[in-house]
C-alpha cells in the first residue's frame, strides 16, 4: 500500500468537505474493494475518507410502501433486519448469498453500488425493483445510476446516503455463485411491482454490467411462471466470458436463474 492520509468523517457534510480538500481523495465504506486494491498498489488515493462512523448513514426504515436502506448499513445488518425480511425478503436472501461472513460484516450497500462491479449482487436488486439512489445532492433512479462496468452517475465527491426500494408485490433472486470470488457468475432478480409491472435484472452476465432482460420480462408479463421462460431465447453476444463460464453458459444461466427466481418469488 502507498502512503495515504486517513480521515474519519463524522457527518456527510464533513466527508464532502474533506473530499474537496484532497487532491485524489477516495471514500471508504466497508473497504471490501478499495482496501484490497490499495494493498495491491493498484489505487493510490491521497486521502481516504472513512464513512463508516457516520450515524446518519446507518439503518433501515420502512415507511408505507417504501423500504429505505441507508448507504452505510452493512450486509449483515441488512440481512438481519426485520423490516427488510418483512417488506422485501428477496433482498435479505440476496444479502445472505453475497460474499462470505467476513465480507458481510464489513461491506455496505452504498459501497457495493458505488463500485458497480459487473458481477455484484445489489445492482440487480436496485434495477429490478426500480429503486432510487439518494445522494447528498440529489435522487437518481437505478436505471440512470448504473452506467456500465464500474461506472455510475455519481459525480466527483458525491456521496450516496440511502437507497429507497418500492415494496413489490413479489420478488425473487437466484444466483449462480462464481466459484472463486463468490460474486455472481450470473444472477437474476425478478420483481412484480404493485402496479403489475414486471422487471427482470441480470448481473454477472453482460459485458456492460447489470442489465434488464426484456424478453424474459415480456414472457413473465404474459404468464408469471418458470415455464413461461422456457421458450425465451437469450443471446450470448455481448455477454461476459472467462475461465469460469463461457458466454453461452451465462446466456443459459440468465434463463435458468430467472426461472428459479420466479419460483423463489412465488
Amino acid at each position: 500500500m502507498y502512503q495515504t492520509t486517513y480521515h474519519r468523517a463524522s457527518s456527510v457534510d464533513e466527508a464532502a468537505s474533506l473530499f474537496a480538500k484532497g487532491t485524489e481523495a477516495k471514500f471508504l465504506a466497508g473497504g471490501q474493494t478499495l482496501l484490497p486494491v490499495m494493498k495491491q498498489r493498484l489505487a493510490s488515493p491521497s486521502d481516504v475518507i472513512d464513512l463508516g462512523k457516520i450515524k446518519e448513514l446507518q439503518g433501515v426504515e420502512l415507511s408505507g410502501d417504501v423500504l429505505t436502506i441507508k448507504a452505510g448499513t452493512t450486509y449483515f445488518d441488512i440481512m438481519q433486519n426485520a423490516d427488510v425480511k418483512k417488506a422485501i425478503p428477496a433482498i435479505a436472501y440476496l444479502t445472505s448469498v453475497l460474499g462470505d461472513p467476513a465480507v458481510r460484516y464489513r461491506g455496505t450497500i452504498g459501497g457495493s453500488i458505488a463500485n458497480n462491479d459487473p458481477a455484484a449482487d445489489y445492482p440487480a436488486a436496485l434495477l429490478a425493483l426500480g429503486a432510487t439512489v439518494k445522494t447528498n445532492k440529489r435522487s437518481i433512479s437505478a436505471e440512470d445510476f448504473f452506467q456500465g462496468l464500474f461506472t455510475t452517475a455519481l459525480e466527483d465527491g458525491e456521496i450516496i446516503t440511502a437507497v429507497s426500494f418500492p415494496v413489490p408485490a413479489k420478488a425473487g433472486y437466484a444466483k449462480m455463485r462464481h466459484p472463486a470470488s463468490r460474486f455472481a457468475l450470473t444472477a437474476v432478480f425478478v420483481a412484480q411491482t404493485k402496479s403489475g409491472e414486471i422487471r427482470v435484472a441480470a448481473t454477472g452476465a453482460s459485458q456492460s454490467g447489470v442489465m434488464r432482460v426484456p424478453a424474459i420480462e415480456a414472457a413473465l408479463k404474459a404468464n408469471w411462471s418458470p415455464a413461461a421462460i422456457d421458450g425465451v431465447s437469450v443471446s450470448a453476444s455481448n455477454l461476459l466470458a472467462d475461465i469460469h463460464g463461457t458466454a453461452e453458459y451465462r446466456a443459459n444461466l440468465v434463463k435458468v436463474m430467472a426461472q428459479r427466481a420466479v419460483t423463489a418469488a412465488g
Partner: peptide
C-alpha cells in the same frame, strides 16, 4: 468439472 464444463 466446473458447472460450465459439466453443462457443456
Amino acid at each position: 468439472a466446473t458447472p460450465d464444463r459439466v453443462w457443456r
